[in-house]
Design a protein around this nucleic acid. Structure first.
Lengths: 135, 135
DNA sequence: TTAAGTGCAAAATCTTTGCAAATGT
DNA sequence: ACATTTGCAAAGATTTTGCACTTAA
């Protein structure tokens, strides 16, 4: 489905900024930090980016994950439930700061005490990615 | 082992602030946010708290985990490897913001692509804790 | 005594809010 | 036309840095 159609289908107005950002996220295919996105969309205001990301997350077109480096990463996901964040683990490279989706590594079940209710699970693995390993 | 002895054993100077904060963390037994700690140690400067936590983490007397609410939690752990953060999952209550150690839920093994190297793994589960469930 | 740690003030970041102008439907 | 969205400026919040003073060894 095309970007503008996906926006429309989610009851979001089709604006330049939203198309731009959703396209960037989709092209990247892995979680991106606010700053990374901003670098690729320098014509868009910082504040606008915050708000666009909010609206995309609210519309479930984008999902956010957080690494131990303290920054949120935003990841576009198709609705097939197979891509991000479909219950898989994420890897954060401590050198280049890039985050990867480990789509084949599903998050397992965990036993919780008493009457705890689960709304979300997140697995984050830290280390060095392939590329950084060779430098 | 006593707090001051543990500091000394880690080559850290035994200061009022460090004893105070390590004691607070140990008494709590679960991950605490910067603000939570500050509330219990109001005589200690914000900045000092940042620095003390840094030194404790560097000395491996304290470990930090991060929730999807964007704030770091610090958790003291005994060296028996059984308590926080000994490779177990964490639960963050979305209502009260409290984090719990799920000490009996070990983090399983995950398969990584190619030459990725792992230095750390973190599992975070979100939802409602027992107490908040009843309110 | 002297190297490390602390507290205060101030800078640097990062995120949110308010409002007028621009844009989508 | 009318409600949303955007961009700018400015407020808030959080974390870091600089530096003189204090404290542990």
């Amino acid at each position: 489905m095309k970007t503008n159609e996906r926006l429309k289908a989610s009851n979001l107005r089709v604006t330049k900024a939203r198309i731009r950002i959703l396209d960037i996220l989709e092209a990247r295919g892995m979680p991106m930090a606010h700053t990374e996105i901003l670098n690729l969309a320098q014509d868009i205001d910082r504040v606008t980016l915050y708000r666009v990301l909010d609206s995309l997350v609210a519309a479930s077109l984008v999902h956010k994950v957080q690494g131990t480096d303290g920054t949120w990463r935003f990841c576009a996901h198709e609705d097939d439930g197979q891509t991000c964040p479909g219950g898989h683990a994420h890897f954060l490279c401590e050198k280049c700061g890039q985050m990867f989706c480990l789509t084949d590594q599903k998050i397992p079940h965990f036993e919780l005490p008493n009457a705890f209710t689960v709304s979300h699970k997140q697995v984050l693995i830290l280390g060095l990615c392939d590329a950084c390993h060779h430098t």
